[in-house]
Nucleic acid binder design. Sequence first.
DNA 1: ATGAAAGCGCTAACAC
DNA 2: GTGTTAGCGCTTTCAT
Lengths: 331, 331
Amino acid sequence: MSTDGPVTLVEVARAAGVSKTTASDALRNSGRVSERTKELVTTTAARLGYSPNPSARSLRRANTGAIGLHLPEILTRSEYYMSFVFGVVERAADMNYDVTLITSRHVPAGGAFHRVDGVVLGDPLETDPVVRSLLESSVPAVTCERFTGDTAAAGVVLSEHGTMLEQLLDHLRAAGARRPALLASSPTTDWGTTLQQAFRAWCRRNGVPVLLREMAFGAPPDVVQDNVRALLDTDPRLDALVCAPDGSAMAALPVLREASREVGGDLLLAACVDSTPLRHSDPPITAIDLHPRAAGAACAQLLFDILAGNAPEGSVRTLEIGLNERASTGT
Amino acid sequence: MSTDGPVTLVEVARAAGVSKTTASDALRNSGRVSERTKELVTTTAARLGYSPNPSARSLRRANTGAIGLHLPEILTRSEYYMSFVFGVVERAADMNYDVTLITSRHVPAGGAFHRVDGVVLGDPLETDPVVRSLLESSVPAVTCERFTGDTAAAGVVLSEHGTMLEQLLDHLRAAGARRPALLASSPTTDWGTTLQQAFRAWCRRNGVPVLLREMAFGAPPDVVQDNVRALLDTDPRLDALVCAPDGSAMAALPVLREASREVGGDLLLAACVDSTPLRHSDPPITAIDLHPRAAGAACAQLLFDILAGNAPEGSVRTLEIGLNERASTGT
DNA sequence: ATGAAAGCGCTAACAC
DNA sequence: GTGTTAGCGCTTTCAT
């Protein structure tokens, strides 16, 4: 009975006593076959345990049924990216697409490329060679945040980080802070650049000195802590600290305690990327909510729209972000 | 010059003045072609921007060059799983394999299945229908931790969680704790079951009552907190708390403070899943280190070994785990 | 309403 | 050392 290997369409067709074509049409509801034969084919297919070969289908249809997803390797541990990933995956699943993870390790050295119809790039680093090769390849790419290099993506999903940071700074000022500092992220991403610019602009506008220290993406906690110490040393009157890199606010906490600063009291603390630990910290820490899951879903959606021709190449979509005010900025 | 669509092998062959086969062999270093023509083909391929069609290759070779990865949907936000994922992806990339994420949303309703040569299942929940269908499908599956249902996987990677929990409890006892409690995870995974059993066994052996509250996988923080309160109410002499579910130790912290318990002093606190926030908490919290990245890599490796016939079906491999002792258990 | 045949792009036998 | 041929399993004209 059982030959080797999986059941193919021909075998189903033979067993049902119809042609390849009819079997194919019956299984795909093409509306060509009679109700009776469709029924027949469907049941025999089920009986034999048939399942179509995706490679053959892809070859014929000239699409793969999968999209690629690339994230900056260094900071892949963060809750933000995890949520982002699942936003993409869920949206893709709804469209019956698979999602293939692409690492910086997998450089297609002249060899085969990935089996994807398009790619989503989360926070594309200008310095990442895989990002470059993906953007230069023929498959459409959607980036979350702008790519700071010269290559253009087919689509971009972005948020108004600058506006939101200024809103946060206004909030700190309203809560009494006069000397805010920014623990910034390096300008290798659009997000990093935008935050720095917005901060400088706000400081100029409010006539306060620019207290800023910049850190590489994915810097370890002790580097964060050194930078916080440096900021505290630079200006003892510092009375508010905004931490951009994901995780840096939590890492800063012990240093602030060491320096006998009371978070939420004589020092206001806020983060630019919200996460669970911030919510449960003592005191809970104010943070910008980037809606990562929605961001992932929006990127996937834009990519599908472009693939389907429902959105022009070069589309830009904006995603709402929010501010979660907590006790660390005086409630 | 440029027709439409991507460059194919025939076009390269024609341009180089050789046959399809020779072109194919040259590009794959099959060792059949002369050094000279290989050079020729390689350069023309590069000039034309040729890149092989993965679907065609898959169809011909009868493999897909990708493995699937499934995780329990509810707790996908955790750092543990993120690291696990990248362990899998990196190992796969080293073997020139892609990794496709499979969600619980994507149920193959009689239709096409995923384009993968095998799957890795992280903590397979007995109740997850996708896990079941994956295990029952024809592609080999490797699980991280045993599947508690009746279907057998082709391979299993597991750690000695029971032994490690007992070691942790001994550590707490040595630090002076006499009434330890376990905030347990529901026995829907092997991990959850093993921890509960080990705890009960240890309590019996040490002649202390079993203080235990069980929680569903992925329970939200307020449920965690209710359970911690319940434990504190049950036995006021409780002097050590071990939190199993990822993130529950951090969520427990504010409740313990409310109850005026001093973590690391009159109450020792430990977690069964280490993560960054635990390291930076005040005080830092002792935790079991599950080496998630290594676990992911080990699962991928076992799967590749099985696919290549280098490991028998039914292989079981053990992964070392560790204990990170911190101030929350009295240093 | 159904079949027959062509072919997606590639690799593996089998020639020479 | 290189070319010719035959498919992998599927979808899609084009005929009945």
